[in-house]
Design a protein around this nucleic acid. Sequence first.
DNA 1: CCACAGTACCTGATACCGTCAGTCTCGTGA
DNA 2: TCACGAGACTGACGGTATCAGGTACTGTGG
Lengths: 254, 254
Amino acid sequence: MPAGPGPAADGTPEVDLRTPDGRSARWDEHRTQRRAALVHAARKAVHRHGPDVSMEEIAATAGTSKSIVYRYFQDKPGLQVAVGAAVVAQMHTALDEASRAAETPREGLRAMIDVYLAMVEHSPHVYYFVTRPLSEDAEAPLGHFLDAVANLIARPFTAVLTAGSRERVQADLWASGAVGFIRGTGEWWLSHREDDGAPTRLELTDRVTTWLLAGPVGFLTRTRQEASSHAEPPSTTETPCTTPTAHLNDEEQS
Amino acid sequence: MPAGPGPAADGTPEVDLRTPDGRSARWDEHRTQRRAALVHAARKAVHRHGPDVSMEEIAATAGTSKSIVYRYFQDKPGLQVAVGAAVVAQMHTALDEASRAAETPREGLRAMIDVYLAMVEHSPHVYYFVTRPLSEDAEAPLGHFLDAVANLIARPFTAVLTAGSRERVQADLWASGAVGFIRGTGEWWLSHREDDGAPTRLELTDRVTTWLLAGPVGFLTRTRQEASSHAEPPSTTETPCTTPTAHLNDEEQS
DNA sequence: CCACAGTACCTGATACCGTCAGTCTCGTGA
DNA sequence: TCACGAGACTGACGGTATCAGGTACTGTGG
């Protein structure tokens, strides 16, 4: 069906610009509108029925049938990334407001964490839908959504940075880790929120911000002492691998 | 179907202990052996065919048919957690050797990261199989595997700790974040390993260790300056929420 | 300038296919 | 008699195909 020349490969299936025919152009606005509406419906359906909604249910929520959904989205992962993009866009706008007031990178990071946790708290289903990898490859297109968030995080750091590849890579790497940290704590919090001693969202935000920027300072002074005393020299080639990483897999040999 | 009294809910489907019948007890050893063999076969199959193997393929790899697999494991998630447990067990033994030599928590953490990354590197398929949530609930049984790893990480810290719930929670929380950080960087590394400027696994290990314990020191001195100056007071109630977390979901109202 | 045929695209329903998780049935061997 | 094991079966779901409409644009002839 996609007779178009370009390999689009993202969610959008071949919009085919080369015809200035009014009969085609007439639908352009309608198309974008409809697509947005479908994304919205998908979010609603996921929010209601959990991250494992069937396409049929999504279509039903949108008041139509599968055919339509598949006309606008390549497949389920395609829909997933579209929803993810929408969520990221919302986070981005929310972040713009926040980072206008934020001077230091610390405030920027804090705002980021806050927005992230707010999303997690407000609609865990959508969060999981967007977060969970659906692709069978699972290697290259790891976490479209999480990658985007990592970029959001890395931006304030890389902005100050010369485009030298060495440090850029460092920033990206750290951002990936930071998103992972937030994700980990966020999901832990989601399922331990009711326990006694569990922090509120704001406490969590502050704590995670501090931990990310300064390490596990504050929650354990004793171990922290040792840790920080050893953490001073961050030379990358510290000691050769002393851990006997024992063969962790025994299932290859063809 | 599960006529057994206890809510097992782990991988084991009701072994039905209430019959001390010799005709039944005769099979006990065979059962545990078989179960281990099936887990092994599952790992092999996943390693070969990717994290989306069908149960049929797993059974075929084990040289049998689905019925058998379902006799020993409740369902696919059950098998998944069994495989995860096996991997965690291997990590645990690998870690025991390492942590015998490790005095400081830092060395313990470093060893942990090393083992984790080694696993990721050696068999990404198995890693994804074990890592990805398969349950539709997706909330309570979040990441059996990742939780176990988090416990592994938290142990050296909590060992020194009084059992006071307040600090235990802190340690657990931090451990979840740390695992998330390692996961994030690990998966980033998995798909950017070939880029120029990408670190080797050992460099990555050292860097992540340092970052986790002391924050992003070393890769950007300028921003780090600001960060650390603000990071000193880790009081949990720092400033009230200044970020305008904008309504991130618009899809509820029944 | 206007009617008309033809066209390009959208809609939504329904039926269909392939795959896969999970179950059931029945034969076999100790 | 008991567990084992193979294979047929069911149901759900992702995804495709077909079909009968519907509506606005394009071109051409009167």
